[in-house]
Every structure is written in C-alpha cells, then in structure tokens.
Write a protein that binds this DNA or RNA. Structure first.
Length: 489
RNA sequence: GAGGUUGUAGCUCAGUUGGUUAGAGCGUCAGAUUGUGGUUCUGAAGGUCGUGGGUUCGAAACCCAUCAUCCUCCCCA
C-alpha cells in the first residue's frame, strides 16, 4: 500500500484527549467567571466578509488575515474577469472577484459588526462573552499559532469606568482560579496622547508609542536612536527619556507622571481614569466580599470546589501594575489599555484589552463606546503546562471498566453497565473477550480506577467482582447491589 | 517579510575523518501465563536515513536545491 503523505497546515495542531481535557478546564474556568459577571454568550461565523476585517488591525494586521478564495473561478464565462482581477491581486490589492471572505482575525471586530447589525434589538449596556478560535497568517513560533482560541468579554453602550473595574476583576479572578501568577499591566491612551502633545503634536503619537513600547526589549539608548530617526528633536527625546525613567511603586509612578504631564488637559484626564480604577483595588477599600457571590449558581453550572466561598480572598484585589510604556498595537483603543503577563515564565502576553470609543462607527453606528478584554487560551495552556499547574483529576476519563469474558457474560455485564451509566458513572465494556492480561493493561493505560469482572462463575452466582486497581483490592458484590456500590473516584 | 535550528523505526534519540547487512531505549505484537494487571524474562515485526539532484570506487554523513519543523526579529494572544 502506498504511503500517503499526510500533515497539518502550518501552525495548526490536533488535540488529543489529554490536551482537550486540560483546555476544557481553562475554558470552563474562564466561562464561569464571565457568567458570574453577567456576560452573555455569543458566537459568530468562522468567516466574515473581507471588507469587514480589512483596515481594522493596521497595515501589518491586514497582511495576516487569512483570505478565502472565491468558488467558481474556473467557470468559463468568468475567466476573463478572473484573470483581470488576479492581475490586481498580484499588485497587492484585494479584489472581490477573487476573494470576498476571510477567516476572523480576532473576536472584537466581529462583535462590533454584530452590534452594528443588531443595535436596535440589543439591551444596553450590552455585555457579551465569546469563546472561539481565530486565525492569523503569522509565522509560527513559541506561543504563536495560526489557529488559536480567544476568550473575549466586552461591554458596549457604557462609558462608566466601573466596566474597566469589572474587567480587571475578571482577569484577577480567572487567573487566580487557574493558579497562574500574573501582572495586569495598565495604561491609558490619553496619557500617551498627552506625552505626544508635550512632544510636538498628536501626529507623533504613533511614532512615539511604537518606539517606547520596545523599551524593555531594546533598551533606552536604542529607543532614543529610533525616536531621532522618526524625526523627533533632541529636546522632545529628552522629555520622553524622563517619561520612560518613571519607576517605583504604582503610587510613586503616578506622582512622577503627574509632575510630567499633569498640566496637560488630556493627561490629567488619563491619570484620573487610571486612578479611579486603581483605587477600587486598593487593599484598604474592599468592595466585593463573599456575600456578593452566589455559590448555588455556580454549582448548578459545574460542580467545582474552586468556586465555593471558603475564604476572604474574594475581597477585591488585583495585581495591577502601572506601565506607561504599554501601548498596544490595535489602533482603535482610546482610553484604558490592559495587558496580562505571566510571572516566572518566558511568554508573550496571555491577555489584552482596552477601551474603544467608537468601534461600531466603522460599521455605521456611531457613538457606541465599549471596553473589553481577551484571554489567550493557547498561551495560558503553555504557561500552565510549563509551570505544571494542571490538577491531576483533570485527566479522569472512564471510571469503571467491565471485563468481557464471553457472550453470555458480556450481555449480563452490559445490563449492569447501563445501570451505572444511568447513575452518571462513566463506564465502558471491553469489546472483545480478550485475555485478562490484555484487559487489565487496557485499564492501566486509560487510568481507569475500577474494573468489574463477571465471568462464568459470577454469572451462575448472580454476583460480580469489583476490583479497585489503585489499592489492588477486590470484593464480590451481588449484581443487584452493584448500582449502589460505594465507588470512590 | 528577514535570519537561524533540526529532519534516521510508532515515540525519544545514537550513528567514529565518508567504508560490509543502519543501532539503542521506550512502545507494539507473540510466548513464559486458558480467571487476576503494573514487575521480570524470551522472541518477533517495524527504516525509500524528509524529498530531488550532485561529488565519490563507495553517502545517513560532504555540496546544492526543495519541503517540513522549531526558534529569533517584526507584530501579536
């Protein structure tokens, strides 16, 4: 038989049982937190019209959008048009005749498109969460895939900074539940705007932010060189140097920042917004306590001890870190910007978000402000794997295996198995009457804690043997009582 | 888009300055063992050495091309 070459598209992966279970653990944790904060689920198609996506992510972003070739280009009557259109594609243009759809690049723009399409029917403030894969034609490397999941929560129709407070709290809660140590970096585009104003005008803002965003990677000297190359004067660069030299505790940073840009109107506003959010998370001013959480709701959704109220850690706190060099590439942000970085591990950001004043304006519905955050599940997975943070009980699959010891025996076993399944016990029967050795090894491999033996002797006696594989102990139980056997999983 | 790494059995990897028939561990299968697993022992199957060309008496090894992979930059989750 000829060996067929098989493979996956670059940057995509299969997920085996073990991986899927771990990922589900992350999904369910994040989803439960979203629901806990009153966000409603939404799903949108994998593909959007190309012009919905183009131009929303900057020039670089546009290049990374996966485009879908139109069907039917081979039809004879379309050849001439298709060839003309393809010439334009070769020039780097996007042409409807060749490609009019594309895979979604993130969840925020499809959400904005959805809100714009349905704005008459929605109740505002509209809070939605969305957990779906996105695709980017990036070159894969560590922590970077071409297909990956995002978990987004956004609220539109409200300018209140209370939304920011909630989203920061969502980050803090979810990462605490996952056991991932993080810093939630926070900044405000208005602060960056003030710096730009101080350095000769708002038109310099992009140049400045792109350069200072690289501070921790290339160092202050190279940033200065880059700024000069981008046409800033020595004097302006000197101001930026002072800005970048801001350090210390959050309070110290804020004081130094105020001294530098506090006299500028927009800068003052930015600092006020930052301060408002920050003070909610001051350890002295707890505003959320255990009484505000309803454990019954959560336990109805998933039984999960991590969400029971057992301590005072739900008093609000968050590892907020002021980072005035934080810029974030997406150009639609206008206010608060957030980025989550995992501690103790080398990995790009595992979450990001911010406030945008007018995202739906791009789709014809103006004056609808919003703010949102995103979790990068695949990177969170990599971080948790590296730091060994997944609980062991995530991997329990089948709980009971019935041995197959013959035709009549397996029929009896099957009936008992259905009883256990009706009780919610995950059970399976070995499909063939194989040797004991083989069936035991199967149970071992699948990490199944109990096996049940029902052979000729048991069939006659109306019993079965229940064996605990971890302890190596076995006891005989009447078939009628098996359904009430005290399994310990 | 730029730069680098690695491709040998199902998996992880050895393989001498280029030299007979390419190895190990793990896994798989069979047996020791026809109703009691994990251990042990014995045996077996399994390889176009990523692909295509070149150099050579001779290539898994050297050269070129190509594909795949992982990583770095850019940007991002």
């Amino acid at each position: 038989m000829a060996k067929v070459k098989v493979g996956l598209p670059q940057g995509t992966r299969d997920f085996s049982a073990e991986t899927v279970r771990k990922r589900n653990y992350i999904f369910i944790t994040i989803r439960t937190v979203f629901e806990l904060y009153g966000y409603q689920p939404l799903e949108t198609p994998a593909m959007e019209n190309l012009d919905t996506l183009m131009g929303k992510y900057g020039e670089e972003g546009d290049k990374l959008i996966f485009k879908i070739l139109n069907n039917g280009l081979d039809r004879t009557e379309k050849h001439l048009k298709a060839k003309e259109d393809f010439e334009k594609v070769l020039e780097g243009k996007n042409v409807d005749g060749i490609t009019e759809r594309a895979l979604r690049y993130d969840l925020t723009i499809p959400f904005a498109r959805y809100v714009a399409m349905n704005h008459g029917q929605l109740t505002y403030p509209f809070k939605r969460y969305q957990i779906q894969p996105v695709w980017r034609a990036d070159r894969p490397q560590k922590g970077r895939y071409r297909e990956f999941y995002q978990c987004d929560a956004d609220v539109v129709g409200s300018t209140s900074l209370l939304n920011e407070v909630e989203l920061v709290s969502i980050y803090a809660t979810a990462f605490e539940k996952l056991g991932v140590g993080v810093d939630i970096k926070i900044n405000n585009r208005k602060i960056l705007g003030a710096l730009a104003e101080l350095c000769g005008g708002a038109d310099k803002m992009v140049d400045i932010t792109v350069a200072i965003d690289k501070l921790d990677k290339i160092g202050i000297d190279k940033v200065k060189v880059e700024l000069l190359e981008r046409g800033l004067t020595e004097e302006q660069v000197s101001i930026i140097e002072q800005y970048l030299a801001i350090d210390g505790s959050n309070d110290q940073k804020r004081a130094k920042l105020a001294a530098l840009i506090g006299h500028i109107e927009i800068g003052k506003k930015g600092i006020e917004e930052l301060t408002y959010i920050y003070e909610f998370f001051n350890p002295e001013s707890s505003i959320v306590n255990s009484e505000t959480l309803d454990p019954t709701y959560v336990s109805l959704t998933i039984p999960d001890s991590r969400f029971t109220i057992d301590d005072s850690r739900f008093t609000i706190h968050a590892p907020l870190v002021f980072d005035f060099t934080l810029a974030r590439g997406l150009n639609y942000y206008t206010g608060t910007i957030l980025e989550v970085k995992a501690r103790n591990v080398q990995m790009g950001s595992i979450g990001g978000g911010g406030r945008y004043d007018d995202l739906t304006g791009l789709f014809g519905v103006p004056n609808l402000p919003g703010v949102g955050v995103s979790f990068g599940v695949d990177r969170i997975y990599d971080v948790m794997e590296e730091l060994k943070l997944f609980p062991e009980d995530v991997q329990v699959g089948t709980q009971v295996l019935f041995f197959n010891l013959g035709e009549a025996e397996s029929r009896a076993a099957f009936g008992l198995m259905q009883q256990l399944r009706n009780k919610g016990i995950r059970s399976e029967i070995y499909p063939e009457a194989a040797k004991f050795d083989k069936q035991f090894k199967y149970a071992d491999k699948k990490n199944i804690p109990y096996i049940i033996i029902l052979g000729a002797q048991e069939l006659e006696d109306g019993t079965c043997a229940v064996k605990d594989l971890k302890k190596g102990q076995q006891e005989t139980v009447s078939q009628a009582r098996l359904v009430n056997y005290p399994f310990k999983f």
